[in-house]
C-alpha cells in the first residue's frame, strides 16, 4: 500500500467516524426501529393485492440489465474487459449445461433459461448489497415514510412472489421439455415408476421441487436483509455494516444466484433423462 492510499483510507475512516458520531443522535429507540421490520407495503386493487416495492425494484433491475446489454451490443473480435467477462460467464454456463443435459437438442434452450434466471437473480441480489431508497412506515395501504440510505435496497428476490414465479416457470418448462423429448405417453408413464403405488410419492416429490427451490432463495435474501438490519442497529451503524453488506449481499447473493440457476439446469435435465 502506498503512502497516498494510506492517507486516503485514513481520511475516509475519519469521515466515516464523524458521520457515525453525528448520526448517533438520530438513531430511533428499539421499539420504533423494529416496528415495521418484516412487514411489507401492500396495495390492494379489488380482489388481488401486490407489493409495489417489488415492482419498482424489479423495473430498476430490468433497466440496469438493459443498460448493460445495450453497452455490449457491438461485439468485437478482440474483446475488451466487459465483453471478456461476459464471454467467460456465458462459456462457463454453456459448458455446465452441456455436461448436465443429455439431449443435445435441449442444450441451447436450457442454457437460455438458466442464464436469464441467473442474470436477473444475481443483479437483484446485488441491489440488496448496498443502501438506497427504502419504503418504511405505512398505514391502511398508504405510504407515510420513505427512508434514504437507512437500510439496503429491498431486492425483488426478497419477495416470495418473484421467486415462486421463476420456480413455477421452471417446473412447467421442465415438464413441457419432457413431453417434447419423450412423447406424451412416456411422460405419463414416468409418473407410475417403478409401479403404480408410487404415484403419490412421485407427485409430492415433483410438487416439493418448486417450493423448496423458491423458499431457499427467498429465505436467504429476506433473512439476510432482516439480520443485516438487526445487526446494524445493535452496533449502531458503526463500521460493521460494510462487512455485513459484503457478506449477506455480495457473497450469499452470488452463491444463491448460482445455486438457483444450477438447480434450474438440474431440474430440467432430471426430466429429460
Amino acid at each position: 500500500m502506498s503512502r497516498k492510499d494510506k492517507i486516503f483510507l485514513a481520511v475516509v475512516f475519519g469521515a466515516y467516524t464523524m458521520a457515525w458520531i453525528i448520526n448517533l443522535k438520530y438513531i430511533p429507540p428499539v421499539g420504533e426501529a423494529f416496528k415495521t421490520l418484516g412487514h411489507r407495503w401492500v396495495v390492494s386493487l379489488g380482489s388481488f393485492s401486490f407489493n409495489p416495492v417489488t415492482i419498482i425494484n424489479a423495473s430498476i433491475v430490468f433497466l440496469v440489465i438493459l443498460w448493460f446489454a445495450l453497452s455490449v451490443r457491438d461485439l468485437k473480435l478482440i474483446p475488451d474487459r466487459k465483453q471478456s467477462i461476459l464471454e467467460w460467464l456465458f462459456n462457463t454456463f454453456y459448458e455446465m449445461v452441456e455436461d448436465t443435459v443429455p439431449d443435445p437438442k435441449f442444450v441451447r434452450p436450457t442454457f437460455v433459461i438458466a442464464m436469464t434466471v441467473f442474470i436477473f437473480v444475481w443483479t437483484s441480489n446485488m441491489l440488496a448489497s448496498f443502501p438506497g431508497v427504502v419504503f418504511v412506515g405505512w398505514e391502511n395501504g398508504k405510504l407515510t415514510e420513505i427512508g434514504l440510505f437507512t437500510d439496503t435496497w429491498q431486492a425483488p428476490t426478497a419477495d416470495l412472489n418473484t421467486n415462486l414465479t421463476y420456480a413455477l416457470m421452471v417446473f412447467v418448462i421442465s415438464h413441457a421439455f419432457a413431453i417434447k423429448a419423450k412423447g406424451f405417453k412416456a411422460w405419463l408413464k414416468s409418473w407410475f415408476e417403478p409401479n403404480a403405488i408410487m404415484m403419490p410419492m412421485n407427485l409430492i416429490g415433483e410438487l416439493a421441487k418448486p417450493i423448496s427451490h423458491s423458499l431457499r432463495l427467498f429465505g436467504n435474501i429476506a433473512g439476510g436483509a432482516i439480520l443485516t438490519y438487526i445487526f446494524t442497529y445493535m452496533i449502531k451503524y458503526f463500521l460493521l455494516p460494510v462487512f455485513l453488506w459484503g457478506f449477506f449481499g455480495i457473497f450469499v447473493g452470488t452463491i444463491q444466484a448460482l445455486v438457483f440457476s444450477i438447480l434450474v439446469i438440474a431440474y430440467i435435465s432430471a426430466q429429460l433423462t
Binding site: 423448496s212 423458499l215 431457499r216 452463491i255 445455486v259
Partner: peptide, 9 residues
C-alpha cells in the same frame, strides 16, 4: 448453500 437450506427454512 444447499445443505443450509433447512436452516434457512
Amino acid at each position: 448453500a444447499v445443505a443450509e437450506s433447512t436452516g434457512i427454512y
